[in-house]
Design a protein around this nucleic acid. Structure first.
Lengths: 127, 127
DNA sequence: ATCCATGCAAATTTTTTGCATTTGT
DNA sequence: ACAAATGCAAAAAATTTGCATGGAT
C-alpha cells in the first residue's frame, strides 16, 4: 500500500487515506466514515483526520457549514463554493500573497496561513 | 434607543445590538448571551443574531473554531487572527477583488461573497 | 515489550426546533 | 387583533474524551 510519514501503518489509516485520495471533492468526517464502510469507528476517523492534518497529509478547512472538510494535500489553493448545488471547485490563483506582504509591513502581523473561500454560483447554476 | 430596520423592536434585540456595538472584537453566541446577563434565552440570542445577519445589521463569520462569530456591520473587511493570544484585528485591504474578477472570467464562476482570514502572530506575540 | 491506535460509550459544544405563551405594532 | 418574538425544553449535529484492549514496530 502506502507508507505514512513516521506514523503507524494501520488498516484504518490506509483506508481513510485511500478514500481521500479518490475523493473528487473535500469530504467531511461523516462522509469519510461511511466511505470506509464502517470498518472504522467515527472517533477513529476524527482522530486520524486530525493526525493526517497535523502531519501535512491532508488539508483541513472550513466552508462555513458548521463542520470541517478534509482534502488530500495538494498544491496550495482555495475553493469556489456554489451556493446553489454545493459543488466545490479548486482554484490555484494566489494573488493573496501580495496582500500578505502588505499586512506584514503595515500591521506588523506575522501571517502563518490564511483561508480564502469564494461563495457564489458555478457556471451551470447561473442558468 | 435605536430602531432596527423593519423588525420588531424588542428589549432582547436592543440589548443584543448594544452588546455587539460595544464589542471590541467579534463575539460568539455564548458571549453575547452572557453579556446580556441572561435576560434573554440562548435560543433567542441565536435567532436574533441570525435575523440581524440576514438583515445586514451584523456580519457572521467563521474563524475555524467550530462556531460562528458576530460583529456589528462595518465597512467590508477581513480579519487577522493571532494563533497565540486569539486576538482578532480588522483589516480593510481588499486586493481580493482583483482575484474575484479573474475567477469570473477564467472559471465562469459568479462570486457573491468571499471569506478571507489570516492566521498568524500579532505584533506582541511575536516576541 | 512498548507505545500508539482503536473501539465503545459517554460527554461536550454549538446550534436548531417545536410549541405554547407573550408582546410589539 | 395578529403576526412575530420569546422562553423552555428537547433534539440534533459535530466533535472530543476516558479507558480498557489490541496491534504495529
Amino acid at each position: 500500500m502506502r507508507l505514512i510519514s513516521g506514523l503507524k501503518n494501520t488498516p484504518s489509516r490506509l483506508a481513510i487515506l485511500s478514500v481521500l485520495e479518490k475523493g473528487k471533492y473535500p469530504l467531511d468526517a461523516l462522509q469519510v466514515y461511511k466511505a470506509v464502510k464502517n470498518n472504522t469507528d467515527l472517533a477513529t476517523v476524527y482522530r486520524t483526520l486530525e493526525t493526517f492534518s497535523e502531519n501535512g497529509l491532508v488539508d483541513k478547512f472550513d466552508l462555513e457549514e458548521g463542520k470541517y472538510r478534509y482534502e488530500i494535500k495538494k498544491k496550495h489553493h482555495h475553493h469556489l463554493v456554489c451556493e446553489a448545488c454545493g459543488r466545490i471547485e479548486d482554484i490555484f490563483s494566489n494573488d493573496v500573497f501580495a496582500l500578505e506582504k502588505e499586512i506584514k509591513s503595515k500591521y506588523e502581523f506575522l501571517v502563518k496561513r490564511h483561508a480564502l473561500e469564494f461563495f457564489g454560483l458555478c457556471r451551470s447554476c447561473q442558468k
